[in-house]
Amino acid sequence: MEKPVKDAGNGSGRDERTGGGKGVNRRDFLRGVAVAGGAAFLGTPTDVQALHDLSGWPDRMGMLTDLTECVGCRSCEAACNAANRLPAPNAPFDEKSVFERKRRPTASAYTVVNRYENTKTPGNPIYRKVQCNHCEEPSCASACPVRAYTKTPEGPVLYNQDVCFGCRYCMVACPFYAPAYDYDSALEPKVVKCTMCHGRIKAGGIPACSGACPMGAITFGKRGTLLKVARDRIRKFPDRYVDQIYGEYEAGGTSWLYLSGVPFGQLDYPTNLPRKPIVENTKGFLSAVPLVLTLWPALLGLCYAANRNKEEKG
């Protein structure tokens, strides 16, 4: 009934081949049932409700970036570039002048590191690594009209360019501005974003950026364990960290977690996000869809009949 989800890596998923990730899971199954039942047309509120219980995947992985450890060496950028065979950058990876302006992930870079002034210890800049946060309840996946995104049981959110027609609603919906688009490609543009090295994870490895970080600032592990580790660090070194794990609750929680020495708002992290998954915001609307579909014809038919009746009598 359901097409198996293709190995959905970015680009052509070279790295992901090993895993052969068939992301068919409970949610896909529910969606499949809904579509098969013709409920697609109705907007399927049941499907939306099925979205927010992730208790079935206790082993999903995450990443913990400790911003107080990062020294801005850009090893992660280099490792990511190599692991995903992305195009060579304009400036070499040990070039520090790139920090003069804020960068973002692009069609040729899954991750970038930006530099910020340190308000706590001036002169000791803070570096922030930016990439897809692999949400627990990804907005991009909920927004995609062709289900090009899959939340894998391992944690990564993967994109499949084979069904994407390029509406870019995922980019509108992503609260973290993570997906980039290949605007320069005339005929085969695609969304580009971090895959959390899904293929490596499936093969028992760790994401390239994490393995490359000389400072151990990016820790890969089960999300649950990482939350404990992060809480532990905050508890042990209350002066070093602000008392928040960014990503624990933001937009329903993300696989990628962050610890920082200064408030996250100072580092351009969105601080105005709801704690519940963003897809919840459309739930009310989608629930009203079947009502309109059933009530409108009845009411309008009634109006029509009443007028016909009046005209015939008059």
Binding site: V71, C73, F93, D94, M215, G216
Partner: peptide, 25 residues
């Protein structure tokens, strides 16, 4: 616990932070 490599790097870089170009080259 940081890995051995991370522990070394942290120990050194904490003092030597702005010395040399700490990069992948």
């Amino acid at each position: 616990r940081p890995t051995l490599s991370a522990a070394y790097h942290r120990a050194c870089i904490n003092c030597h932070r702005e010395v040399g170009s700490v990069g992948t080259d």
